[in-house]
Nucleic acid binder design. Sequence first.
DNA 1: ATTATTTAGGATAAATTTGTCCGAAATAAG
DNA 2: CTTATTTCGGACAAATTTATCCTAAATAAT
Lengths: 144, 144
Amino acid sequence: MFSKACEYGIKATIYIAVKSMRQERVSLKEIAEEVDSPVAFTAKILQSLAKNGIIDSHKGPTGGFQIEESKIDTIKLHDIVHAIDGDKIFSGCGLGLEQCDARQPCPVHDKFVGIRDNLKIMLQNTSLYELATGLEIGLTHLKR
Amino acid sequence: MFSKACEYGIKATIYIAVKSMRQERVSLKEIAEEVDSPVAFTAKILQSLAKNGIIDSHKGPTGGFQIEESKIDTIKLHDIVHAIDGDKIFSGCGLGLEQCDARQPCPVHDKFVGIRDNLKIMLQNTSLYELATGLEIGLTHLKR
DNA sequence: ATTATTTAGGATAAATTTGTCCGAAATAAG
DNA sequence: CTTATTTCGGACAAATTTATCCTAAATAAT
């Protein structure tokens, strides 16, 4: 469903959010450990999240990543996925046709659009705040 | 959403079904042309569809692929996808965790399960017959 | 200023998916 | 039986995704 990059990106962002709610900055190393993801690859993903304005990064000692607290309930799962995978998940024909729309649909067009709309709505409706809170109160987990 | 292999496989199966409803066998070459897919790669996919009992194959002159007519409305999109991609689309955690279920869920578990159930139900409910008929009466198309 | 620490970013490598090539096996027809 | 045609299946190649490595740049602290 999601790419590995996206999986790592989502987990990392949730972890950063939890720490940011406590006014703490976290290092790449800590994130990768807590989220069980390859360090260097995670670095790339965090880079693109930073470029897309989802997270903030700071170099040097005491540096690391954090998220503006006011943003945490504004940011949606959709924004994270979009920052990493672009909109290729949300657009394009289910069978890979170049020309496929309601007028000239592929055989699975309608059914596919239905599923994808569900996905999009879900992603747009779930906030980072909600995900981070669930983790903090021990309702959910990020490792294993 | 689907792998390329799956996209080609679905298109090919629908095309074979249309021809089979007219008691015609089709060659790999014709399928690849009509479905706009790479010939040799399509051959591999058809092989695995044949091994999984979705389609029948015959070697030699006048050979080719076909589908038992009685099967056409029994076969569901789900069967095609499963024959090609296995059940990796239907199982596993949305964030790649090894241990993730209702008791120890990842942060997106519930939402993810919801979407995936939709997908599964859709795939189990749409028959090859329905897809082939739509194509035959010109309601849908497979190229471009 | 110097040093230690941390992210940025480019180059490279490994793994997976996608795609090609070609000889072998089956089989229909002359 | 021979030949032409078609799928089978293994080896190989290209492209993409995943992952690593290393140097540079920034920056906090001494």
